[in-house]
Design a protein around this nucleic acid. Structure first.
Lengths: 155, 155
DNA sequence: TTGACAAATGCAAGTTATTTGCGTTTACTA
DNA sequence: TAGTAAACGCAAATAACTTGCATTTGTCAA
């Protein structure tokens, strides 16, 4: 039914090497975490990641590493709507993008829309910002599946 | 030095009436909170709002009311980057907009950019969403003032 | 290979932001 | 102006992280 995942890989994913390239020690909690992030189809919470790496890392280590990964550009932190952060992998197969989230079931999809560079320039001029370094766009709506089940209940 | 605030008002701001129009009891904690939100130039944290209303509301009441206000469309909750939520007023003088935040000093400015309707349509089609109800755009950068002081230290 | 050493880890114990339970008070309505 | 549901405030609980510190572990140079 589904098309093959965009995450299918030609080369095996080498977490250890990625870590060393980023100047980080390749410890087993880090390897497990990076693999979990890479394998995830969508941004995950710290709790979900902890469950996913199983006994391979203490929660504290996990938080510390998520911070390190974000600083090194291996992962990206996004603020979910439920008051906790979500993390996603940043690599060749996961380039800059944004999200749509279903407000009913919480499912997230990547979307390609982005802020055009000239708009960023305009904003930085108007708001007197020397530089715009980063941005986040989050869309919220109701996915087709949830809409369908809502309609059943209350047409 | 500064141009007159966009928040200058022709009519006095009637918190009680706004509350009743929203179907809410006009209690003094609510009136104080709504006034504080209305008077704020930028989104405020729950802590800042609590400080701002002084003894006029317990923190718990404040949280409960922020939730109620958000549900009634009197206020909007946005997820700050520091792990706590920020709240801002929604009224005639505070219509739909987004923010740029200085990553050095934390100052926020409103910006006018938005996602064009046809992009939303396109996204909802591609991502199989029945409807896109809401969206958030947050820009991050360095404001002119912070850039200036950074340059002084490390040109 | 080894062995020194900084970096990274894991517990335990904090913090901070926000929520829940519950008895009391208060604004609205008849 | 009395009755009542809604809103309040206090205390205590929870969730999401963070910090301190003693212990372990990759790395790198010998």
């Amino acid at each position: 039914m589904k098309p093959p995942s965009a995450r299918s890989r030609r080369h095996p994913f080498d977490a250890e090497q990625l870590l060393r390239e980023a100047g980080l020690k390749a410890t087993s909690p880090r390897i497990a975490l990076l693999r979990a992030l890479h394998a995830a189809a969508r941004p995950l919470s710290a709790a979900a990641l902890h469950a996913s790496v199983g006994g391979d890392a203490d929660v504290v280590t996990l938080y510390r590493n998520l911070e390190v990964f974000a600083a090194q550009g291996l992962a990206r932190r996004i603020e979910g709507r439920e008051g906790h952060a979500l993390y996603e992998c940043v690599d060749d197969t996961h380039t800059h993008h944004h999200h749509v989230t279903c407000t009913v079931c919480g499912r997230m999809e990547d979307v390609e829309l982005c802020v055009p560079p000239r708009v960023l320039e305009e904003v930085s001029k108007k708001a007197r910002f020397a530089e715009i370094q980063d941005h986040v766009i989050e869309l919220y709506g109701i996915c087709a599946a949830c809409q369908a089940s809502l309609t059943k209940i209350r047409p």
